[in-house]
Design a protein around this nucleic acid. Sequence first.
DNA 1: TAGATTGTTAATCGATTAACAATC
DNA 2: TAGATTGTTAATCGATTAACAATC
Lengths: 213, 213
Amino acid sequence: MPQVSERTIGRLSLYRRLLDEMRAGGVMYAYSHQLAAMAAVSAAQVRRDLMVIGYSGSPSRGYDVWQLSQSIGVFLDAPVKQGIALAGLGNLGRAILSYFTGRRPNLAIVASFDNDARKVNRFIHGCPCYPSDQMGRIVEEMGIQTAIIAVPAGSAQAVADQLVRAGVKSMVNFAPTPLRVPPHVYVEETDITTTLEKVAYFARSGRLMEDSK
Amino acid sequence: MPQVSERTIGRLSLYRRLLDEMRAGGVMYAYSHQLAAMAAVSAAQVRRDLMVIGYSGSPSRGYDVWQLSQSIGVFLDAPVKQGIALAGLGNLGRAILSYFTGRRPNLAIVASFDNDARKVNRFIHGCPCYPSDQMGRIVEEMGIQTAIIAVPAGSAQAVADQLVRAGVKSMVNFAPTPLRVPPHVYVEETDITTTLEKVAYFARSGRLMEDSK
DNA sequence: TAGATTGTTAATCGATTAACAATC
DNA sequence: TAGATTGTTAATCGATTAACAATC
């Protein structure tokens, strides 16, 4: 398998979503420039990304929508079921859980953790919720390698450390504090305050976009 | 004011958060390499970013933590109060609202919108919730230029169109469908499915990180 | 065929890093 | 002073785009 950059992975995921929408609309073939317009990238970029995963289009008809969606799936999806752990079942944790449940066949949040006695030892959105102090043991036993951190900033680092010790290899961090992890662990930071600050800034200045046109 | 890239804005926001933590811990001066380690960038990058906003450090003591935090604020923060609209008060909308309330003095979610009769015409987390069909009028009257989209995928584009017509210039989109907007509008896409797919991919392959070391 | 696409390479572009004289 | 920092420029790196022969 080729070495694929983070951005390419993100775009492939997006292409698949767009393709699935097209397929639902009865479209059978798509040209690179159509996909490009929807994904807001260049047509050459689309072609290059698809080349990377070894998929070819036809000069006359473009890309077969269904087959391409399948090919992206082969590349992106877990070959076997891959469980995800969710730390923290506050508003955000529950939103993620309810939103993600059932989206991808081989990718599911299989265990969640919280301190709140009212949530613990129950099923929430179809997912079992365990007490936080058993997180390390359960994650290790289940062989979970991916985790979502949706706990308050104050406990995020401690939770991350526990997860890494339990064998987790990649995480999404929603807590507003950057995590320090060993180099072999991949962390995607998604901080809402930073995002809002950025967006508010561009609402005021707006110049970057104008200049690029 | 200089032209500043999207990434730089994001890093500045992060530096400020780190500086504020340091300040809370009683630290008065910070060197570029300290900030760099915490933000996971190079020291030269930190220096360059701070140069961009016109802030200088001292070769002997590094950067004054309090003054630097202030300087970043002058650059990043809204000079006057800047209101944000929130479309959709499901789990995710409420999580964003409760999380962001009171974080930034001049940046606040001042109006939220939903269809649910049980939420409408009440204050939720201190923010008024209005019926969705009045969104355009209210956003326009309040002069709101930034919006958060936290509605289901099916209605996201229609909501975005309404917001753009009402004068919104930048948005954060949490709905799992890319938005089409005029070129003068800035949109930050934050799709949780894509993020999870990406992170799960790197849990399996993990090669990108190993190679970069 | 003619036309618009494709895969693929070369050129471009921008961000990041490395290097170094100036500074405290 | 000596040492470690700083601001600032040049070199590097990687991603993106432009270009074009090959293809249907």
